[in-house]
Design a protein around this nucleic acid. Structure first.
Lengths: 214, 214
DNA sequence: TAGATTGTTAATCGATTAACAATC
DNA sequence: TAGATTGTTAATCGATTAACAATC
């Protein structure tokens, strides 16, 4: 039934995968059901079954889903049955935190290159990786046919770098800069601006308890 | 028309606000239109007008929206016309990066407290803030009536802390731990797991260029 | 077998878009 | 005025949910 998968469905698969992996690690059981998974995640069981049905039939009536089998299938669907090398651009606070983060390894990614435009930083090691000059970025990415970058540079520099990335094989950008990026349609962009997430929640906060009101 | 605002509409308002603020800073013009704003953001002009119409009438036929006025209105709608004190929990790599991040100040937030469970870290200064023992977290949050936290602790510790937060005035959690949190319905949770964002994009990557396939 | 749970269909629900009268 | 753009309505589009036959 692989025809036209809604992106919103794709967006839930990593959530399912993460929950299933946690189940597998805790390892109480070999199987789970759409009901149990949905309960954990606050998602309806019907939605989980519908989402999975876009890709095939992974369960058994009466018993549900074999956890490890479903994990393996989701990894294949999402192309996570390999390790994606990722270039990290920007060696500031966020770049340092990401380069040192050990949560990528077992989830399909490896920070393979680290670039910064500050000559004083070039050559320094961060998370076992040498900082390379940004002037070499395009050449390196093209040579390595890299498809994904994490962009952790100041807002003012982000669009210019995105323009350079458009000249490479890059097709996915995780953008930490608090600015919208304009890119050609073949490049996917996901934004990671914590303030946007926080501002989305203040709407619901109790303003009678608010401090610092002016 | 303030009756039942869809959360998906709320989610776009901070995006609009960020783009408008950038426009105001660059300061070429005093007004903009739903068409211009939508073009920048890849959103239809009709959607922008519809979203705003939930809250009032902010534009003028023929001329569009006064940028600074719309910014002010959005800030009021989102309760950003004040400074929200936020507790940061976890002083690891991410906690350090966030505590040192200077992008909160002008967007409605201030990291006011920093907690960690490592006695060796307690007392150290990070981003001008002393690390406090996690054992004092609940008491401090209750005394200060804090409503928002950023949770940057290991996955294994996140749910336990969330349970403690449920005993306080906290109503919003920005969760950096790569695990789903179960919280009472009055607490809003937004997740910030970069790997989830990255895994969502690999579906679209060119697997013929993929490295490390097994 | 009896109970449980899938995959799928059809109905419902909600969000987006097109179009346009109103009007600056 | 003429052109531009709003706010809103109705139509369209898409996503979620309820229900159930199939079957392990």
């Amino acid at each position: 039934m692989l025809e036209e998968i809604p992106d919103i469905v794709i967006g839930r698969l990593p959530i399912y995968l993460r929950a299933l992996t946690n189940m597998a690690v805790n390892g109480e059981k070999l199987t789970t059901s759409s009901h149990e998974l949905g309960e954990r995640l606050g998602i309806s069981s019907a939605q989980i079954r519908k989402d999975l049905s876009h890709f095939g039939e992974f369960g058994k009536q009466g018993t549900g889903y074999h956890i490890n089998y479903l994990i393996e299938q989701l990894r294949q669907i999402l192309h996570l049955d390999r390790e994606w090398p990722v270039a990290l651009i920007g060696a500031g606070h966020i770049g340092h935190a990401l380069a040192s983060y050990n949560g990528f390894q077992h989830r399909g990614f490896r920070i393979a290159w680290l670039f910064d435009n500050d000559p004083a930083k070039v050559g320094q090691m961060v998370g076992g990786l040498p900082i390379q000059p940004i002037t070499e970025m395009v050449e390196t990415l093209n040579r390595e046919k890299t498809q994904m970058v994490v962009l952790a540079v100041p807002a003012a520099a982000a669009q210019e770098i995105a323009d350079q990335l458009a000249q490479t094989y890059i097709r996915a950008i995780l953008n930490y800069a608090p600015v919208h990026l304009n890119v050609p349609p073949h490049i996917h962009v996901r934004h990671n601006d914590p303030v946007i997430q926080m501002q989305r929640m203040t709407f619901y906060l109790d303003t009678s308890l608010a401090v610092g009101s002016r």
